[in-house]
Simulated scan of single mutants.
Amino acid sequence: MAIKLSNTTLKTLETRGKTYEVYDSKTTGFFIRVYASGKKAYMVEYARKRKETLGRVGIMTLEAARNAAINLIQIAKANGGTIPKSQPNEGQTTLKRFIDEHYEVWMTQHRKNHAKDLSTLKSAFVDLMDIELCKITHKQVDDLRTGWLRSGNKPATVNRKTTALKGLFARAIQWSLITLSPIAKMGDLTVDENKNPRYLSADEESRLYAQLDARESRLRTERASANAWRMQRAIPILADLDQAPFADHLKPMVITLLKTGMRRGELFNLKWKDVYLTDGYLSATDTKNGKSRHIPLHPALQNTLKAWNDGPVPENYVFPGRDGSRMTDVKSAFNKVIQDSKIVDFRLHDLRHTFASNLVMRGVPLNTVRQLLGHKDIKMTLRYAHLSKDNLASAIGLL
């Protein structure tokens, strides 16, 4: 397909289920590649079946990309259909080039968490981007790890970054671009897996709910004031929050996390088709380990979800972002409520720990907790074992 590419037509190129290309009718050989991930790249076919990436749409301008395409086509014509290497790294497989031209496309199609892993690679290893894959050394990566630790990164965070790079090198070996990984023998930093997880005490949980209610009241008051201002100026008013069961998404989201132990990503991916209000359970389908799990609905959560959306559309997100798209973050709103609750050292993920801790402290077997949390290995669940005081006391009583 060939159309005249312009800044306007670039915005109309929709993401499809697979990668496709749109050629420019103005400049022969110049085209846009639209990946299934939504990424768009300027490309040029400077000779038969010989293509080159020019840059990313949104970073490089259309005019600059078209001029670069014309320049490469002219160079190729003058050199028998090839582009001579005029710079040391030109044409060589640097880390950046490998990611942009090979690994990102593969990750998008084969890895569920591709966006997060690719972001990690591009931000954590920016100092290595212009180095050839085969010339990156063990010490260079080790120096980066040391710097991360000095800047305050936790060992678990450092390990995740290193693991992302190990996966990249493994793929490059499989594609015969390199023969050895410089960090194949790099061990993980020691992480205390048994460190007591942070969870809400009964008092903290009570304060959290109180601040969520206070926030609801404040949002309703602010909306009423805004609508009064609009009415005076004949401006269309906004929805009346006094008629809504919740002022916005935050309170029902927190209740969902506290009563299911879902991960943040699982919550953001949750759609109404996965919620079975009549049968009393929901399905976490887009999970970290790739295995779906069913979570019974606590009565409070069941009532919350019924009130949150009356007559839900199956394909819609339960907690949508703007324009119905997938929500990506609630950190600012949540952290403000935590601060107002005078709760310290507590993250959104710790609501998951609170769910698990409350179950264990009420005598629920660890394997049942493991199933509800979706842990592959019970070793992760054993972090909560110390909370089961009654079970430990009963064991000592058998002596």
Rank of each mutant, 00 (worst) to 15 (best):
A65H: 04
D192Y: 03
D213W: 09
I3A: 01
S25A: 14
K77W: 08
M262E: 06
S292H: 02
T179W: 03
A210K: 13
L392F: 13
H375N: 07
R160Q: 09
S217V: 11
K4M: 02
S37D: 05
L392V: 04
T9E: 09
R33V: 08
L168M: 11
G152M: 12
D188C: 09
A247M: 07
N367H: 15
H249F: 06
A65Q: 00
G187S: 11
I136G: 02
L5T: 02
K331N: 11
A47Q: 09
D390H: 13
D24F: 02
S123K: 15
F125K: 01
A234H: 13
R230Q: 11
R160T: 02
A65L: 02
F319A: 05
V57C: 12
Q211E: 15
N67E: 14
R66W: 00
K11L: 06
I295E: 00
N89S: 15
I32H: 01
N358F: 07
T304I: 01
H294M: 12
N358M: 06
Q87A: 11
E204Q: 15
I75M: 13
H386M: 12
I136K: 07
V44K: 03
R97F: 03
R370G: 05
K77T: 12
D142E: 14
K49N: 12
F334V: 04
I70E: 11
L277K: 06
I338H: 05
R171W: 11
I295L: 11
E21A: 11
A65I: 02
E222W: 03
S357Q: 01
I378T: 05
E21N: 12
D350I: 03
T8S: 13
G91T: 04
R33T: 06
D329Y: 05
P296W: 07
P182R: 10
K288Y: 01
R16S: 10
V254N: 09
G29V: 06
L398C: 00
R48E: 10
F169S: 07
S119L: 09
V318S: 09
V313C: 11
Q74S: 13
L297H: 03
T287M: 04
Y384G: 01
A300F: 03
T179L: 07
T278K: 14
M1R: 04
N113T: 14
K195G: 13
A210R: 11
I83N: 06
L241S: 07
I396P: 01
R383G: 05
L238G: 13
R383Q: 13
L387V: 05
